[in-house]
Design a protein around this nucleic acid. Sequence first.
DNA 1: GGCCTATTTAGAGGTCTGTCAATCTAGACA
DNA 2: TGTCTAGATTGACAGACCTCTAAATAGGCC
Lengths: 127, 127
Amino acid sequence: MPKQLPVITPESIRCSPLMREPLSEQQSADLAKAFKALADPVRLRLLSLIASHAGGEACVCDVTDAFDLTGPTISHHLKVLREAGIIDGERRGTWVYYRVLPDMLRTLSTLLTAPEATEAEPVPAAT
Amino acid sequence: MPKQLPVITPESIRCSPLMREPLSEQQSADLAKAFKALADPVRLRLLSLIASHAGGEACVCDVTDAFDLTGPTISHHLKVLREAGIIDGERRGTWVYYRVLPDMLRTLSTLLTAPEATEAEPVPAAT
DNA sequence: GGCCTATTTAGAGGTCTGTCAATCTAGACA
DNA sequence: TGTCTAGATTGACAGACCTCTAAATAGGCC
């Protein structure tokens, strides 16, 4: 499972705590790739199945049954999550086990967090 | 700006704190819609521009210049964000002002958060 | 080696998405 | 009323995406 190169890493994104300042084009492009990996119901469910599985990892065969999809399709979605730096897979004998890489999810989570309740006042219509 | 109906709300998602348990098909479908709205570099940058703008809101004309895109395209992206329940817009005179709705972002952020460092042990190969 | 199972890769088809040009709507103002 | 500006909507097109079937790869076992 030699994680092919076009993988995004949390370090490569390195975005400020939140949207307290505008994102650069590069940042937004990298972040969009990460969010795109999450923007599919099958991948979200795959992720939750892996993350919530005993031991923090799940074999492909463990999760395939939860879907009405063919093996190759599941494999495709796992690859997308892997290339987004969200999960990683390891072959052990006949089976391949996937586990969540928490760093990327943490990075995305932080990005979406409000820095503080710094004042969400609707602005007193100061014309 | 009568927010057309197919809007997702944080309440409608109501997912458990994190992926401590598998997502249902319905939850994953709703969440995927929300993440899909974030899965575009232009929309992410729009969001950061609005969120970081003085007063927490920005007029369309404030953000359009940051892009090499036509008005209709910007308008389209704003609509996607609006229908995802991530921003809301309000017309004031000639201009339309957008602001971030923090609830949806908070919901998504929480979803991606690890419940705790509950033990990321690689499992002692307990065959 | 030969066969079987688990998973990935390759290629194709149908659908969704981002973008644009053209057009339309809403408000301001003379 | 007419006109101007700010945004939104519509329709079209190219490229990306999800899914499948068919074929390939990897490891275990006889």
